[in-house]
């Protein structure tokens, strides 16, 4: 029999902050402790990520089912060169055509002298407004992804 204990790397004991983050995520702090810890979370992004990581582990631990044959086959397919190549090429072509198409169509419309200037200004403002709104939503989502404990769930 293999003696795994002699090869297992020794993990350092959890810090006080790690223990507090675990207790906070598990709802085990008293009301006063939780309030104090919540105040620290607003000021310390590293602590916020610690809580999010613990929550993500907790959520994953509930997934007790074994992988199904179809899932194993699907993950193999994702590694397949042809599949990866065709999907990557598809996304690149689609993204380029949509973004360049929107930019060219907007430019042509805004520079078209046959369209009254107020209409062009309004349309330009509308396109810019949509772009700003999308940008702010995208930025918010990108910041929230690491804090989303459910993103690793599959089924």
């Amino acid at each position: 029999m293999l003696d795994r204990s002699s090869h297992a790397p020794e993990e350092p004991p959890p810090s006080e902050d790690e223990l507090l983050a675990m207790a906070y995520a598990d709802g085990e702090l008293s009301a006063e402790e939780a309030t104090n810890f919540s105040a620290r979370l607003k000021a310390e992004p590293a602590l916020l990520r610690l809580v999010a990581e613990h929550r993500a582990l907790d959520v994953l631990a509930r997934q007790v089912g074994l992988p199904e044959p179809a899932e194993i086959d699907w993950s193999d397919l994702k590694e397949d060169r042809t599949y990866r190549g065709t999907t990557a090429a598809g996304w690149i072509l689609l993204t380029l055509s949509v973004s360049i198409g929107v930019a060219v169509a907007s430019g042509e419309f805004l520079l078209d002298d046959t369209v009254p200037a107020p209409t062009r200004v309004l349309a330009g403002a509308g396109v810019l407004g949509l772009a700003l709104l999308f940008g702010s939503v995208l930025r918010r989502r990108l910041r929230a992804i690491p804090l989303d404990p459910y993103r690793h769930l599959q089924r």
């Binding site: 959520v59 509930r62 179809a70 699907w74 459910y150 769930l153 599959q154 089924r155």
Partner: peptide, 15 residues
Amino acid sequence: EVHEYTKVIAEAREE
């Protein structure tokens, strides 16, 4: 199976 929607339902259920 539409895995994309299986996943979103699983996420919503746990949340």
